[in-house]
Design a protein around this nucleic acid. Structure first.
Lengths: 237, 237
DNA sequence: CGTGCTGTTGTACGATCGTTCAACAACGCA
DNA sequence: TGCGTTGTTGAACGATCGTACAACAGCACG
């Protein structure tokens, strides 16, 4: 009763009073809610999709989410978009940081794939929840379509460079190699990208399900052996 | 009001009266509920885990499930066990049906893996739901541990045969080959099984996510090429 | 035909879900 | 210092969740 008047009186009396909450800019709060969503999914799996669980994780009240997002699905889709772009961005950065040789770039890509934060049991839990939403949520489908493109382009580009170099190992044209190889190599490149993606994703999945089964370095080695066989077959034909 | 007396009167008047439900043996009803659970998961994803959705799918009332299963989790675990054993049993049967040569057996295994009912978008939806439960349900973990053993044994056995034949291609001992190769080949066999499983699962996953990306026969070819490279490397060293 | 067993039904209950909304309060600004 | 904007709170709503349980009814049997 009379809560407001009492608090105003306390404040005007000069007593130090901690604010009950902190106002933030919409942009910052939105990002905090997105982070809390992902953290909540890591901790509680599908149960972490609850508005109350997410708001508790973010340290805010239940009503705040609908002030920054029109509904729950939009928040989840935003979290999925952020999760995807973190992955793709991290891989792209690792490749860009590597030496300017197709092999070194591929190695950097593989090592980044089999390192934290990508290689993480909690991350798998998050992916699984999103995958489960895929078929019944147009929002999730749209995010998937938007972000997957960058991943495929990155991986295909590296494979094209490697295959071009394997076919013409003595000509020094690392820059134009991908473009030059595009004609005749396209059917092989398509299957090669499919196979490498499958091997990569499968190893990643296996490790997350049972981290003791093999070491990350062994996964990188398996992928590199596969790429090596691919190049050998390409140069042999 | 007085529903019972009225219906008895109708019945004794000789009017034909359809039974409102059919009693079934517990074993049959349990299986029907398990089938309904899987079908419900295929149709509605994670939302299909609801007691009311499953009972509607099975054409029974909500209360019946708790008469045949102590709670929802036990039903789900039973469904997961059935789903797993259907997969492993189908693969084992396909291998047993194949010709008695390591290559033929491996081919049969791969073709069965990339065929309905295993290669099915709906099936992926079911797997994803179960995977999402894995971390937080001891029942699911137990089922996984029980059933995965058979799958690994099957795949490792075929790989061992193939590697043994590759190492000694001229000695005719297809029966004892696996046993003979067990000593020196074990480290390679371990990584080989990991790699093939990853490639297989990854291709399966990719196809289910985007069935138009490649044909099942191409997936089989990719796996066989991988096995071929493995054997070549084993015989070369 | 009547009786007993038990498979089956459907309501009821408390908990939790996503969402709404009126009231509160933090903080920039005059 | 007081005011206005608006980020934030938390109670309340109806829907739906898993489970319990008393009543019903199919069907085998005497």
């Amino acid at each position: 009763m009379n809560g407001r008047g009492a608090s105003v009186a306390r404040a005007s009396r000069g007593r130090a009073r901690r604010p009950r909450f902190e106002r933030q800019l919409p942009q910052q709060r939105r990002q905090a809610l997105i982070d809390a969503t992902i953290e909540s999914l890591k901790r509680y799996g599908h149960a972490g999709l609850s508005i109350r669980t997410i708001s508790a994780q973010a340290g805010v009240s239940v009503g705040l989410i609908n002030h920054h997002f029109p509904n729950k699905n939009q928040l989840i889709a935003a979290a999925y978009r952020h999760f995807n772009s973190e992955l793709v961005g991290g891989l792209q950065a690792a490749v860009a940081r590597a030496a300017d040789s197709p092999r070194a770039r591929m190695r950097a890509f593989l090592e980044a794939s089999f390192c934290p934060p990508n290689l993480d049991q909690d991350a798998l839990a998050v992916w699984v929840v999103f995958w489960g939403l895929y078929r019944h949520s147009r929002l999730i489908q749209r995010v998937q379509r938007d972000t997957y493109r960058g991943y495929v382009r990155l991986l295909r580009g590296m494979l094209a460079e490697l295959l071009a170099q394997a076919r013409a190992p003595h000509s020094r044209r690392p820059r134009g190699a991908a473009r030059a190889a595009r004609g005749a190599a396209r059917p092989d490149l398509r299957l090669a990208a499919i196979g490498l993606t499958a091997l990569l994703d499968g190893l990643w999945l296996e490790w997350c399900l049972e981290p003791g089964a093999f070491r990350p370095a062994e996964a990188v080695a398996l992928c590199e052996a596969w790429v090596e066989d691919l190049c050998r077959r390409a140069s042999g034909s």
